[in-house]
């Protein structure tokens, strides 16, 4: 069979890729324009090297603080998810105990419920604890998740039983089997879940918006929303903030894209 022509596919894919990329490229350009330049008709496509936009955005909202908040929350949520989900997933996949099936169904049921249903009671819990406007309010609900448990359980199920049996005969207890033998083998699953969690946690808006109204305690998503309220159509400033807020995850994605894409493809095959 002759090699099929691929150039027609390239034409369409490249055109589409341009549509995907152009808004980012333009955001970057406008973040370096002066305000009058950004409002020109027809639009100006070159930067005016107004680096002060970045300084301005850091001055007008506590952006550095919000950046740090977002890093801390995302790191804590991701670490918590990886540990707690993998522990539960291991138990569901490898240990037998009464009620396991029913418990797992309950976990799955949680997966089906839209997030808005959790919001008001969680807000009240945080109020009771005096945790409104704190980072732990953003971390505590985030470290628990049925999705991650489900995802990692599939990875544990794919490993051969002989591994646990051999270790068990050697006198290892389940915690040792989990930590020393199986956890290293589900590394692809952990990386996939880790990337998905970083992405979701970094970007989430509704919960941070509701629970932390003090600008010092906001994450970047909510910070951008308040920046918009402040600057309306001053897009160079807004875009400087957007670039700072979105660049870390984009950079991480470029490095870790295989793991993230494997995770997403997995949700499709097992969904």
């Amino acid at each position: 069979m002759s090699r099929p022509r691929t150039w027609p596919a390239h034409v369409f894919l490249a055109a589409g890729a341009l549509v995907m990329l152009a808004p980012f490229a333009w955001q970057l350009v406008v973040s370096l324009q002066t305000l009058p330049d950004s409002l020109r008709v027809p639009p100006k496509f070159t930067p005016s090297w107004q680096w002060s936009n970045f300084a301005d955005v850091f001055r007008s909202v506590p952006l550095a603080r919000q950046f740090l908040n977002t890093v801390v929350v995302t790191a804590a949520v991701t670490a918590g998810q990886l540990l707690l989900c993998s522990l539960a997933a291991f138990a569901f996949a490898r240990l037998r105990f009464p009620g396991r099936g029913a418990l797992f169904l309950l976990f799955l049921a949680v997966l089906m419920v839209p997030g808005e249903l959790f919001l008001i009671p969680r807000y009240e819990i945080m109020m009771e604890l005096g945790w409104l406007n704190s980072l732990q309010a953003l971390i505590a609900p985030g470290v628990f998740g049925a999705f991650g448990t489900f995802l990692l359980r599939q990875f544990f199920l794919s490993l051969p039983r002989e591994l646990d049996e051999a270790a068990s005969i050697d006198g290892a207890n389940p915690l040792q089997i989990y930590w020393h033998i199986l956890l290293p083998l589900v590394r692809p699953g952990l990386l996939a879940l880790g990337m998905l969690t970083v992405m979701w946690s970094w970007s989430s808006l509704l919960w941070p918006l509701v629970v932390n109204t003090d600008p010092e305690m906001m994450t970047l998503s909510a910070g951008l929303a308040s920046l918009r309220g402040q600057f309306l159509t001053n897009f160079p400033i807004l875009f400087a903030g957007s670039v700072v807020a979105s660049l870390p995850v984009i950079a991480l994605f470029v490095v870790m894209q295989r793991q993230l894409i494997a995770g997403i493809a997995f949700t499709g095959s097992k969904g």
Partner: peptide, 9 residues
């Protein structure tokens, strides 16, 4: 790229 970019941005 659009998937990994913060929706707010």
């Amino acid at each position: 790229l659009p998937v990994v970019t913060m929706p707010a941005a």
